[in-house]
Computed example of a mutant assay.
Amino acid sequence: MKQAESTPTLFSRLRVVLVETSRPGNIGSVARAMKTMGFGELVLVAPRFEGALEHEEAVAFASGAQDILANARIVDDIGAALEGINFAAAVSARLREFSPPVLTPRALAGQVAASPELHTALIFGNERFGLPNEIVERCNVLVNIPANPDYSSLNLAQAAQLLVYECRMAALDGQRAASQVGFHGEAASVAQIDGMYAHLEQALVAVGFLDADNPRKLMPRLKRLFARTQLETEEVNILRGIARQILARCPPRD
């Protein structure tokens, strides 16, 4: 029993990240959506107006969830927002050519609820422009809401409400995604995986497999490939060790 009680629940392992939000009301509404479903960690990346967490409209739309705003953090970039995260989920209505694996909200919720070693971030983009490709490509999965294809427009807060609802249901009911295998080791953090990509790119340039001046789509394709594997820390270390040995034998070209 003590072991079960010490296992972190999804309610303490889930972070909501809003990137460059334009409207204070949406920030307050997302805070309200989170609180109604039992989640509390909110991070804002470079909101497009000053005083985002104290803005009158944000406070009004939070409607009883002002504590979520009071405890929220504002950071300058996505790297800071993902510190301590080892499973990043980009939420987007737009599919990308080189996106990570695509999941529905329900499949995503089942997967992260069933994996207590995953510290998960749900990442939502700007109301008008969504998430840039460089953020999507560094995530483990892309979450796409299977809305009406003739009218798939969802407000930011509506999308957040849907995601945290599914996560709550999965956390309470013990749902698991059908394809979930589970990790045998510690899941690698986003920062560890980013470091691996940089190291691997250096090695590929050194051996002449990647032309740094004309990289084409090689690195996005490799990122998509590795995103499907759900890398563990030890696996990242192995890949970096391979890159290190390549660079020892083939120093970077000038």
Rank of each mutant, 00 (worst) to 15 (best):
S153M: 03
A81D: 00
S63A: 14
N155W: 01
E57G: 10
A81R: 11
Q230E: 15
L108V: 11
L218H: 01
M196V: 14
Q202W: 02
N126T: 04
E5K: 12
V143L: 05
G125C: 06
L69S: 04
L222D: 04
P105Q: 05
Q158T: 11
A65G: 11
E97T: 06
F183H: 14
N133P: 09
P132I: 00
E54G: 12
Q230T: 12
N214H: 14
E57T: 11
V17Y: 09
G84I: 08
V17Q: 02
N133W: 10
A4D: 15
F49T: 00
G174V: 12
E134D: 10
F49V: 10
V112F: 13
L200Q: 02
T36H: 09
I74F: 08
Q175A: 12
G110P: 13
Q180H: 15
V112L: 13
R216M: 11
A52G: 05
E201P: 07
P146L: 06
M34P: 10
N148C: 03
D194W: 13
Q66L: 05
C139L: 09
A58V: 03
G64N: 03
G40R: 13
A243F: 01
V190T: 02
P100H: 12
E56F: 13
A88F: 03
R32A: 11
A198Y: 01
I123P: 10
E57M: 04
M34L: 12
V16A: 02
P251Y: 13
L118D: 14
A80K: 07
N237M: 12
D211T: 06
C167D: 08
L142N: 00
A88G: 08
V102E: 09
N214M: 01
P252Q: 06
L239W: 02
S189F: 05
G241S: 13
G40F: 07
L14E: 09
E234D: 12
I68N: 01
V190W: 05
A90C: 10
Q202T: 10
V102Y: 09
P8R: 04
I193A: 02
Q66D: 15
P101V: 10
L210Y: 03
T36Y: 06
I135K: 10
I68C: 08
M34V: 04
L156E: 14
H55I: 01
A159Y: 12
M37G: 03
P8F: 12
